[in-house]
Design a protein around this nucleic acid. Structure first.
Lengths: 149, 149
DNA sequence: TTTCATATTCGGAATGGTTCCTAATTGTTT
DNA sequence: AAACAATTAGGAACCATTCCGAATATGAAA
């Protein structure tokens, strides 16, 4: 597992954000937050359930979804939605581009200045953006290397 | 319904592309192609079914999906996939940005030069893109005007 | 500490767009 | 006209997510 900078900070940010809004910090929520802060592979709900069960064996899928929904609603995590595979969750809530491998499903962040600001879009089209979704679909280095062998 | 340029050309392109690959041009397929060429609102499968049934009353949902899958596979149409609403289809297969209204569901095309070419992405990350999905979510002019009233 | 109100959790049923399956039909070739 | 393959129709199956009702745990107040 690649280690990311600021794992600890993100964990604290999520906990603080949750308390700030008056939510209770239950053991289930704490484990989910710890996992999300630490595991930056954009896990799905089932991934999260399985990994959190190693710490909290009795947690249910309903709770995972309920908690993710809450964190999402409060803007503390982002959700990437797919119709043909399970949704994926990410503590990186900044506007960024996702690189999605069509072979292994891995999602990498590609953080760069984005081309068209909301203001520019609205000026040109009359459409007022409030959120974005920028993705490249393709093949990650790992999968391409495997194929070459 | 806004009229788009090249409706006729697109219709011919789809028909030709289909024949080229050895597919049969059945009455069902012709009606679906005519609808997609003419109706550039990014209709979903159910929209297409209902509208095409005005011309071909006995067409089934299976046929609609089968035909869309074929056109998609041959690169003649694009598909926008959503987990929480029905997928949408588009004869505009160029790389472009979609502006998606969160209120009425309307999808507008915003065709501009995109920021990062596949080559640049690969150079910077090792990830090789083969497709993109760029979307802004927000509120279209129509819906914002309605609200103001 | 005990009580209380309610937020949270849990298990399972329901949902719904899409996919899958099978049989009937159509079109094409010999 | 017969044989073959592609296409179509209808409906069942799929499955991640949402929804529901009942049980439980939490933090605040007494």
């Amino acid at each position: 597992m690649k280690s990311h900078p600021g794992t600890q900070e993100i964990e604290q940010k999520l906990i603080a954000g949750l308390r700030e809004k008056g939510y209770k910090l239950t053991s289930q929520r704490l484990e989910i937050i710890k996992l999300l802060s630490h595991d930056r592979s954009h896990p799905g709900a089932m991934d999260i359930l399985e990994k959190v069960r190693q710490k909290a064996p009795k947690i249910s899928m309903s709770t995972v979804y309920y908690t993710l929904e809450m964190l999402k609603k409060e803007g503390l995590i982002g959700e990437l939605e797919f119709y043909d595979k399970d949704n994926r969750y990410d503590v990186n809530v900044s506007n960024h581009i996702n690189l999605i491998c069509k072979e292994c499903g891995k999602i990498e962040d590609f953080t760069r200045e984005l081309p068209f600001s909301s203001e520019v879009i609205e000026e040109l089209t009359g459409f007022r953006p409030v959120g974005i979704r920028f993705e490249y679909y393709g093949y990650c280095k790992g999968c391409r290397d495997k194929r070459k062998r």
